[in-house]
């Protein structure tokens, strides 16, 4: 409570594990669905991605103060990224379900044929909404201009690459169940996304170090103080570097499974660290030189001279 009354830099406390888990699950689902659409994956991956997105939404609901009013969040899509996210998730769940229904049900009750225009529209809509789901967490966070560490267009791109990396992590995990058939492809894709993520995060942190005191403090929290263990060991070490090493050194199914699990845990920790490192702009008094309220040091010295002489 005391820090509400001083002007020190303060990290946000409102968004924590639950939102990190929501962003993680949603991004994972969106990324996996994009992989399902772009490389030839079995429909079970589409089902998993839908389940992940729904799970993310449920986690988000539990975080809300009044989850039963969440339906109201569809009305402000013109201005609110949270509202847009709710719409994207809704569109994704509906279109992705329609898209995979014929495949799952073995064509027994399909509404249209595979080459039908309607099927293509649904497929594109599902892919676009999945893309939106991977991007929108970055927009939700970067819309908060009171936290300079988040106020950058790089965030949506970072969340997108994190989502794709998470999708790759699931592919690696799944290789344990299919005897490692798709593992080489998944491994090379994973290595590429890890490199991309590392490069983007490094660039982002370097940029934020030069952006001003609050963003610098955020970077300090991440790299040097409170969050350094989670960030260095969890998000970067175990979440990216170790899987990279494992996949580069050995191409066994067991290794891939471990690398996939590490990637997923790293993705969750990364999102948590990003949220917890959000430091607010300093309160007004801290940013403005009000020293002595229009009195110069000389004036103040004169003012206090009698007092100091008396001592």
């Amino acid at each position: 409570m005391a820090n509400l009354f001083n002007t020190e830099l303060r990290a946000q406390q409102e968004w924590s594990w639950q939102l990190a888990l929501d962003l993680f699950l949603g991004g994972l689902g969106g990324g996996l669905f994009l992989l399902y659409q772009t490389i030839d994956l079995p429909p079970v991956f589409a089902l998993v991605s839908i389940g992940l997105v729904i799970a993310g939404a449920v986690v988000l609901l539990t975080e809300l103060g009044h989850p039963l009013r969440a339906w109201r969040a569809i009305f402000k899509a013109r201005s609110s990224w949270i509202s847009r996210g709710v719409l994207l998730v809704s569109v994704f769940v509906v279109t992705a379900c329609i898209h995979i229904a014929p495949t799952i049900t073995n064509s027994s009750w399909r509404i249209w044929g595979g080459d039908d225009m309607g099927a293509k529209v649904i497929s594109v809509a599902a892919a676009l909404s999945a893309l939106g789901i991977t991007l929108y967490p970055g927009f939700v966070i970067s819309a908060s201009r009171s936290i300079p560490f988040w106020d950058t267009p790089m965030l949506p791109a970072i969340f997108f690459t994190q989502s794709m990396m998470g999708g790759c992590g699931i592919l690696l995990l799944a290789s344990a169940f299919d005897g490692g058939q798709g593992m080489p492809q998944a491994a090379s894709l994973t290595i590429a996304t890890i490199f991309l993520n590392l490069a983007m995060i490094a660039g982002y942190l370097l940029l934020m170090r030069r952006t001003g005191a609050p963003a610098r403090e955020s970077v300090r929290l991440l790299l040097q103080t409170r969050l350094r263990g989670l960030f260095w060991l969890g998000a970067v070490g175990a979440g990216m570097v170790l899987p990279l090493v494992l996949l580069s050194v050995q191409s066994a199914v067991g290794t891939a499974t471990v690398a996939g699990a590490l990637l997923l845990s790293g993705g969750l920790l990364f999102r948590y660290c990003m949220l917890k490192a959000g430091v607010y702009l300093p309160l007004p008094l801290a940013g403005i030189d009000l020293s002595k309220l229009n009195r110069t040091t000389d004036q103040l010295a004169r003012e206090y001279s009698g007092w100091t002489a008396r001592r």
Binding site: L4, W15, L64, G65, H66, R69, R72, A73, I82, S146
Partner: peptide
């Protein structure tokens, strides 16, 4: 009656004057 308690406004306020008592 409309607020869902998502804290987006708390985060967005540059003056840190919004609260969501749980």
């Amino acid at each position: 009656d409309k607020c869902i308690g998502c804290s987006a406004c708390v985060i967005a306020c540059p003056y840190q004057v919004r609260f969501v008592p749980r």
